[in-house]
Design a protein around this nucleic acid. Structure first.
Lengths: 348, 348
DNA sequence: GAGACGGCCGAGAGCGCTCTCGCCCTCGCG
DNA sequence: CGCGAGGGCGAGAGCGCTCTCGGCCGTCTC
């Protein structure tokens, strides 16, 4: 098994088919300008030898790699604790493989990794990058832009360094939050609290903004910043109850936080939704459906976000490449925001 | 920003430093056999031009890619619903980047993807592969072995086609199960049930075997096959209670299953651990710590498994390569099994 | 029927790197 | 002071592919 079978080359195929390398190349890459019978003979030779093009040699001349980096800036373990990231990855993967692109995964653990990633991207090993950077002060987006690699961001990036044209895909966090709060208002709730996520993340900030859109005059004590985790949700819920024992609804920044809040409410003997209505965000199924009671929440299409990111990047890439500079479809928006929907279950 | 800055080549560096390409190459690759001052001059030129080697050109001649594929065979969404896979991936990523290797992620969704993956691996685009294949009847491992790529498996692969020498990393599922059950026995429990995972996965089968090791004469009605999900855990628990209302302990195949079981127990008014003791498996923190009561469970070092897989593969690769055929450290075991530890919390 | 045109195919020049060879220069030793 | 050995460096040959260019032939036009 260890014998290194010397892989057949273009040359070999050409010899077998009795044609030139150029012709084989043409057939392998789409086959334009080669007559039917000849092309067929080449295809047979390819089949017979089990020829697979050497990507390195190809890249060397085409300067394309058909590979895209996915960069996940993750100082915290959090992203791994919920399936959010995995789902996006899946969407990305589907879209990329549908277009014969490879997915190179770069996970960053700390500052020292930033330089490594920047170097890698600048090194031109991949055609583009999909970047997930959650925090406003993250230097990574800046470094990446500087590297000059076509990039699409997952989630609205922070505006910290005035990057105007940054292309990103996000879901409508603000609108989703409005839906949630409006729903609670519609239920007749009047003391509605919000447990936000870490506010150095745009998603958390946007959800808070949505909350404030509907309740501009909300008592500031009804808003607590938390961190998107169940444990954080518990702490925040306790604090809210201490501050305002009479609250009658909670909009949590995500389902995990909501699950923590539910636990505290139960522990304090408060009934959900009778005493306190609870709405989450994400519609993360294993969480939202399994809470007690099942969670009313705002659904976002996570896998769809991933797919869309990949699609935007690929489109950009082949525009630069094959470059039909058609101005009519040239309206790549700098940011695409996906809609959210409210999913009603038992908690509100 | 769109201007394609022509990246500097070895040639350019050589010219600037006033040496030959060969010398620059030597310096870039470790610098043996180049005198100090010259090497320094080269390094400065590299710095000044921002030179980054072209990996494609390099691979073309070295036939190495410094890249490893991670293949996740996942017909089901399940793996994505728990952080298991993400943690392994993280371990793998750390180890690979520490050795300057890239991680190419291949997610497979169905049968048609198998051929694609096999072709990719056989195509020699990567130096090796780390493969996660959960199901016994999965054809992927076979295809991959056939592709002749150095491979390490995550989890003991099924023996379906007598692959003797397959290298794999797994945790001690059987031993861990024994620990769990022994603990329950030590608590004085006598009617101990087991909710297994899907038995076409070796991890589930091994845990069941561990259970039987300790309780060879267990009432067969006390064992129910489930599917590693919370919902499955609920269904299984209901069935167990219907069959044997007098059971006094449950060993669940993983934490997710255990959480479902706990919910049913609470719903039926049974106290944990007073009436029924519950032990899980995995020690998946967001789950195990957040259940009510917190879960006693068997911990496995998931990230460590990932690291180890990567390390074994890399070692194998550079043995084939630099090939110090040292027979003394040549004892690469065909399977490495990592120990598990019992973590006692409140549920048992 | 001749010239022009266009479509197919082959020849050959690289893409940027590594690595083997062999030259030269230096040092050690007789 | 002469000779041999050895280490440092440069020249050059590819790695396997793509792509331009030019030659050939068939077809269309007048």
């Amino acid at each position: 098994m260890t014998e290194t079978a010397p892989r057949p080359t273009l040359e070999a195929v050409a010899a077998l088919a009795g044609v030139s390398r150029a012709t084989v190349s043409r057939v392998v890459n789409g086959g334009d300008g080669v007559r039917q019978p000849l092309a067929e003979r080449v295809r047979q030779a390819v089949e017979e030898l089990g020829y697979v093009p050497n990507q390195a040699a190809r890249s060397l001349v085409t300067r394309r790699h058909d590979a895209v980096a996915v960069v996940v800036a993750e100082p915290e373990t959090r992203v791994f604790a919920d399936p959010f990231f995995a789902l996006q990855l899946r969407g990305i993967s589907k879209e990329l493989t549908a277009h014969d692109n490879q997915l190179v995964l770069l996970l960053t653990e700390g500052r020292e990794d930033h330089a490594r990633v920047a170097r890698y991207l600048a090194g031109g090993h991949v055609d583009g990058a999909l970047v997930f950077s959650l925090h406003l002060d993250d230097p990574l987006p800046g470094l990446i832009r500087h590297a000059g690699v076509p990039t699409v961001f997952g989630g609205r990036p922070g505006w910290s360094d005035g990057q105007d044209g940054a292309v990103y895909v996000d879901s409508d966090n603000r609108g989703g939050a409005r839906q949630a709060v409006r729903h609670l208002v519609g239920l007749g709730r009047t003391r509605i609290a919000h447990i936000s996520g870490a506010l150095d993340q745009t998603s958390a900030a946007d959800r808070l903004d949505g909350f404030r859109d509907i309740l501009p005059g909300a008592d500031p004590r009804l808003v607590v910043e938390s961190d998107f985790t169940p444990g954080g949700g518990e702490r925040a819920m306790r604090e809210l109850l201490d501050r305002c024992p009479d609250l009658d609804a909670v909009f949590a920044a995500n389902d995990l936080t909501a699950s923590g809040a539910l636990r505290v409410l139960r522990e304090r003997g408060l009934r959900v939704p009778d005493d306190v209505a609870v709405v989450g965000f994400d519609d993360m199924l294993p969480v939202a459906e399994q809470t007690d009671p099942p969670l009313t929440t705002v659904r976002q299409d996570i896998e769809g976000m991933g797919r869309l990111m990949a699609r935007l990047l690929l489109r950009d890439l082949d525009r630069r490449n094959g470059g039909r500079t058609a101005p009519d479809d040239g309206d790549t928006p700098s940011g695409v925001v996906l809609p959210t929907t409210l999913v009603r279950r038992a908690s509100a």
